[in-house]
Design a protein around this nucleic acid. Sequence first.
RNA 1: GGAGAGAUGGCCGAGUGGUCGAAGGCGCACGCCUGCUAAGCGUGUAUACGGGUAACACCGUAUCGAGGGUUCGAAUCCCUCUCUCUCCGCCA
Length: 430
Amino acid sequence: MVEPRAMLDVKLIRERPDFVKAELAKVQAPASLVDDVLDADRARREALRSLEDKRAERTRRSKEIGALPPGERKSAGASLKSLAEAIEAGEAEAAVAESRFEEAMLLVPNLPHEGVPVGSDDSENRVVRVVGEQKSFDFEPKPHWEIGPALGAIDFERGVKISGSRFYVLMGEGARLQRAVISFMLDLHVREHGYVEVYPPAMVKRECLVGTGNLPKFGDALYRDAEEDFWWVPTAEVPVTNLYRDEILEPGRLPIRHVAYSPCFRREKMSAGRDVRGIKRGHQFDKVELVKFVEPSQSDAELDSLLAAAEKVCERLGLAWRVVQMCTGDLSFTAAIKYDVEVWAPGCKEWLEVSSCSNFRDFQARRANIRYRPAAGAKPELVHTLNGSGLALPRVVIALLETYQQADGSVQLPPALVPFFGGDGRLSAA
RNA sequence: GGAGAGAUGGCCGAGUGGUCGAAGGCGCACGCCUGCUAAGCGUGUAUACGGGUAACACCGUAUCGAGGGUUCGAAUCCCUCUCUCUCCGCCA
């Protein structure tokens, strides 16, 4: 039997379609999504019911035949031939109805959390707070695409030569800086925030991407193998969230908090021509990701602490940052509520998004079938999942290079990084 | 990559065409007994979807790695695939 996968509870759509439509309007999604689901649901249930009636009949009569003496079975069975054929036809019909229903369900986005301000697009997002000092310079600060090559830390030309546009090579102290930042962030989250470290596969099967909500709708953002069902992950959120796919977590397991370092791969088709300068947006980048699995009653509080963990990285690195809350119109397909963390890059003079902290509530859990048992013997319920970067790498490197650049062209790293980078924490031209 | 073996419920493990959602054991839950740190006895112990209920109860269907086939009927027969294990080869 096909397992219906839904982002929303079908029952909610069935019983309160007008409410769902109104909520979808807030996230700029059309009401027709609900009607499509309703139509498909009706057709599917009708098909299923008629099929099950036939199967019940067959089971009953087959048992009668089984009770007969062997010699009489064959002739008795002959009369059931047409019923068997009807069942076969009914199965095909039900399968079609089922997949139509599933397709419709998978295209419905998550509903917004009650606390999210209603707005139509990113212009209505709210800056929640601005923290830290936007460093001032007694010289004109340079953008990282000048600092990096001057230090021999970033090689754009060779990146393009070997892999094409949106690729770059980190060299020498640039590569070491990135490695230091990764180690620093992993250590911080593991040792101080209690996350359990995970090193996940960077290639996954398609069903993982359905689970997290990247498929079926956003396949054009992803790379995949041409011959096999391998997809490069766009974020560690995908493999880590799917760690517990199709599992029932026993009492006491929650909350689960994971931190994972992984490379990430994105086609960036939608942003063609944008952010092509520097290392802000590449087809491949590294990221340290935080992922949580929690009981529903805890997910609001867990989002707060997730956000705090991401902000702690900025604080320790001495960067200026701000937190922006997405309005309903700018929520992602999967998030019920979302905050972005942006760091200030004084060279290119931009706020760079380094983390999106989201509570998906049971949206991903339903798609990925991740449940927990509230108590021994109790019925399984869907967990809530959350995630956010802690943080995304190249942009942190940008902010570090630009914030800590010196008049002589060198870069003096903040104290928190020195033990990881080594030496006196200084990058300078060879 | 080559050869072989295997995949059954939380776990172990029976079951080769009919009354098997599946014996038995373990584990677990509840109750009883006992009374001393353990044992005994009893009962229960999957999930999903659909129907049903105020909510339970209850009814139907599906699920014995996955998909397909044979049959009135499949855990059981046939085909394909996936995964696991062992040995060989190769390799970071």
